[in-house]
């Protein structure tokens, strides 16, 4: 907001050390995209399709 341009919310201070791994993960949109598409594809779609394919024939 225009009116919060005071001390606190000016440019973030320079990083005082290495950025934690988890923060790096959360800052990587394409890594997250990969995870967010792969996980449901494997657990929901592929696993589900395998189950349906393996339904046995009635005698």
């Amino acid at each position: 907001m225009a009116n919060d341009g005071d001390t606190a919310s000016s440019t973030p201070e320079a990083a005082p050390g290495p950025i934690p791994v988890m923060q790096q993960v959360l800052d990587s949109p394409f890594l997250l995209l990969f995870l967010g598409v792969t996980l449901p594809t494997v657990l929901y779609l592929i696993w589900g399709v395998m189950e349906i394919i393996s339904v046995p024939l009635a005698d």
Binding site: D4, A8, S9, P12, A15, P20, Q23
Partner: peptide, 14 residues
């Protein structure tokens, strides 16, 4: 604020 980048560069350790 939630609509601006976190003021601290390393917010994970907050």
């Amino acid at each position: 604020m939630a609509i601006s980048p976190p003021p601290k560069r390393i917010w994970w350790n907050e």
